[in-house]
Amino acid sequence: MTTEQWGVRIPTKKGEDMRQALLREGILDLTLKVLHDGDNLVFPVFEEREGISRYVFEDQPGRIALPRHELVGGIAIMQENDPAGADSILASRPSLHTVLFPESEISGEYRTREYTVLAGTATTLTEVNEHGHRYKVDLANAYFSARLSTERQRIAEKTGNNECVLDMFTGVGPFAIALASRAAFIVAADLNPRAVLLLIENIRKNKAGNILPVLADARRLRRILPWQFDRIIMNLPLAGTDFLPDAFPLIRPGGTIHFYSLVSREGEHIDRIRELGGIEVTERMVRSYSPGQWHAVYDIKV
């Protein structure tokens, strides 16, 4: 039998990296077969993204559909409070040690949320392996998004060897560490003390000696830091617009700001960005977030 579904088309040589990224994000539809299209693969996924299309896939015989979930290291995060489904997810992968259900949205100045343990070990602590890097993550105490794995690689590929980079809302440091092998120097800042402690541990774990961890409110960074930067990452989707006026004085002329935000219409923040000094603005949809809302990134040339 066949099914029409969203599909991500990728060169075959990048297929395994993409498969792993889609598995971590919990959007790879394992009930359907991957399409082989010349030198490309097409992976069936549950949600719409920029640049993807609808394809007809063959059903995967004998594959039992597991409840929707996202993988973060050895932890699975479910979309529904389903203990029986949690047991089936835990049994499906030997690498999993815990299945969680989020009891709240990400909120507060530390960007944290509350979880219930549905199966396995009662912990929110795990280790994530991503594109050759390792991150210690505590989901209840510090922000981390597995869904931005592909974005981290995209920004890393754009980063030049002599660049100075500022990660304004670093969390446990995945953007900063992903860029460390490319950039000359990175300042990774966060307001959450627990996140910064994990960041310091992750810097050591990945031997990223060119990262300076900073515990600070992003609004104070231009008073604290004596530098301007070639590239700034602003990953604070729920409130990032409040900090745009603080980012522009920290970027060098000709530099780039990568600003992430939840939006409900195309071009939602472009006027504000241009008022502040953005001369070239490219808006991309990273992923759908909820009906009528999506996670977007604005690449801003200043």
Rank of each mutant, 00 (worst) to 15 (best):
T3M: 14
T12F: 09
D17V: 15
M18S: 04
A21G: 06
G26L: 01
I27C: 02
L28W: 15
D29N: 13
L30W: 07
L30T: 15
L30V: 07
L30G: 10
T31W: 08
T31H: 13
K33V: 00
V34M: 11
V42Q: 03
V45Q: 11
E48G: 14
E50D: 15
I52Y: 11
Q60K: 13
R63F: 14
G73Q: 02
G74A: 15
G74T: 15
I77N: 01
M78G: 07
L90F: 14
L90D: 06
S92G: 02
S92Q: 04
F101E: 00
I106P: 09
R111S: 04
R113F: 09
E114F: 11
Y115P: 01
A119H: 09
A122I: 01
E127M: 06
I155L: 12
E157K: 07
G160F: 12
L166M: 03
L166D: 00
M168T: 09
G171H: 07
A180R: 10
R182Q: 15
D190A: 03
P193N: 07
A195P: 05
L197C: 12
N202Y: 06
R204K: 15
N210T: 00
I211W: 05
P213F: 08
P213M: 07
L225A: 03
L225M: 05
L225W: 08
D246Y: 14
G254L: 03
G255N: 13
T256H: 12
H258V: 10
E266Y: 12
G267M: 08
E268I: 05
G277H: 04
I279M: 11
V281Q: 00
T282R: 05
V297Y: 14
Y298Q: 01
I300Q: 03
